[in-house]
């Protein structure tokens, strides 16, 4: 990690080689986050590229008060939000994955992969605030406190948003589990 800190410091001082290494090192992390955020590879690639550009201009503002990866999550999520905003100006929301649209109840439980896909699709439909809190905490394993720091909100807000998100997801999936 020291090596990472050094790299960040170098890049913040304007060393392009260090910056390049840094981006290369974290590209996959950002890409994964972006994929979870938007649910398809194409958009995830675009979002990750935008996030990389944001990183180029915004690295100076990383003060080291949270983990670099947490900070990157936030940057990626912001890139994702901006990207969708821009996208919506041109077209309607990206077409949802047709597989995920299939009737939720069929075979859902027997095929856990498909089930996961549906959950992910539902997560993606959550309001941005809830979605980002949920992803950071549930998927990336951050504590509510860490997530709050990364997102720049209060810890209670994170807890509240996760609660709200859980409520929505449960409403959607409990129902169908009962019939299943």
């Amino acid at each position: 990690m020291d090596d990472e800190d050094a790299l960040i410091k170098l890049a913040q001082k304007g060393d392009a080689v260090a910056f390049e290494q840094l981006v290369n090192r974290h590209y996959v992390t950002m890409f994964k986050m972006a994929f979870k955020w938007c649910g398809n590879q194409n958009d995830a690639e675009d979002i990750t590229q935008d996030a990389c550009i944001k990183l180029a201009r915004g690295l100076d503002s990383f003060k080291g008060d949270c983990a670099f990866t947490s900070w990157l999550y936030r940057l990626t999520i912001n890139a994702g939000k901006d990207w969708y905003k821009k996208q919506n100006r041109h077209t309607q929301k990206a077409e949802p994955d047709p597989e995920a649209l299939d009737n939720v109840s069929t075979n859902a439980k027997s095929d856990s992969k498909l089930y996961a896909k549906q959950v992910l699709a539902a997560v993606q439909d959550l309001p941005d605030g809830e979605k980002e809190a949920l992803l950071l905490v549930m998927s990336e394993g951050l504590s509510h406190k860490e997530a709050a720091k990364a997102l720049g909100v209060k810890e209670s807000t994170v807890s509240w948003r996760i609660h709200e998100a859980r409520k929505k997801l449960n409403a959607q999936f409990e129902k169908e589990q009962k019939y299943g």
Partner: peptide, 30 residues
């Protein structure tokens, strides 16, 4: 839910996309 979200099948990233993104970012950085 945690398990589902953590195990999401994220596809292998495209190495060329990565290169492109890194190149764009580096030039932006410079």
């Amino acid at each position: 839910l945690k398990k589902i979200l953590q195990d999401i099948d994220v596809p292998e990233h495209d190495i060329n996309e990565q290169k492109r993104a890194v190149n764009v970012a580096v030039s932006e950085f410079k």
